[in-house]
Simulated scan of single mutants.
Amino acid sequence: MKKYFVTGIDTDSGKTVASAILVEKLKADYWKPIQAGEPTDSDTIRSLVSTERVIHPEGIVLNAPMSPHAAAKLENIDLRADQLEVPATENNLIIEGAGGLLVPINDEEFVINLAKQFDTEVILVSRNYLGSINHTMLSIAYLKDNGFKIAGIIFNDIPNPETERFILQHSKLRCLGRIEPLSAINPTTIQSQLKNINL
């Protein structure tokens, strides 16, 4: 069984779409440890993948669509990483983070800490936009400097060969694939991207 923690360079990098593609590619289970706001990413994944895929219940669901530390405070919840446990499965497991790497769980812990706690490899999703080189390289530097295991990077949306070349050259990370721009997000378009992922 392989466990992967999917995170992104920002909130809108495309983690959920990438997670759906990875769930189908690896015939994996899916789990969202921390969900803040609705609709839930688990519901989105459920609508995009095959019915035989297992979507595990979220570790915790917070009502407000904001940073987990802020949403938890609104509900007077003392949210800590050690409250969350990986669901039991003998299958491959895709774990989707919330927001980017350094989204806070509380005043001391970040969402990316869960990747190390769960002993997973990290898959970083980078969406091509002006400034994405900086955001991607800073994310990679943080992961490397703090001893995370990195499976590789997935580039999402409009291709930018020069940006991707620079990031791969300087990071020395493996490119796990490229998600093409999608005119719609549905089970058919998710299936169309499986050929572009190498994992």
Rank of each mutant, 00 (worst) to 15 (best):
I123N: 05
L130I: 14
D145R: 09
E52G: 06
E58Y: 10
N160A: 10
T51R: 15
R80K: 15
G152P: 01
L93P: 09
R178Y: 09
V125M: 08
G100C: 14
D78L: 05
I112W: 07
I158K: 07
I105Y: 12
L173A: 04
V111G: 11
V54A: 00
P161T: 02
F166N: 01
Y142N: 00
F166A: 06
A81W: 08
L130Y: 09
L143N: 02
N156M: 02
V86C: 13
I140C: 03
V54Q: 08
E85W: 08
I153P: 01
R80N: 12
A64S: 12
D43C: 12
R80I: 12
T44G: 08
A70W: 03
Y142V: 05
H69G: 05
L48D: 11
S126E: 06
I150N: 00
S47P: 10
N91C: 05
M137G: 06
T51K: 15
Y129P: 06
K116V: 11
E90Y: 00
E96F: 10
L138G: 07
R46S: 13
N146S: 05
L124F: 08
A64L: 13
A141C: 07
E90K: 12
I158N: 03
S50H: 14
Q117S: 14
T136S: 15
F155G: 01
Y129A: 04
I154K: 00
L93N: 07
G100H: 08
D157R: 04
P181Q: 09
K144G: 01
F118A: 10
D107C: 06
V122P: 07
L101Y: 10
T51V: 14
S67C: 10
F148Y: 15
G131D: 07
H69T: 03
V61G: 08
S132L: 08
L173Q: 05
H170D: 04
D82P: 05
L114A: 09
K116R: 15
H170K: 08
K149M: 00
I150R: 00
L168K: 00
A141G: 03
P104T: 13
R80F: 06
V61C: 13
I105F: 12
L79W: 03
S50R: 15
V103H: 12
I167S: 02
E121C: 01
I154D: 01
H56T: 10
I158Y: 06
V54R: 14
A71I: 03
T136N: 03
S139M: 05
A71D: 04
R127F: 09
L143K: 00
A98V: 15
L84I: 15
R165A: 12
N76S: 05
D82H: 14
F155W: 01
T163E: 07
I60Q: 09
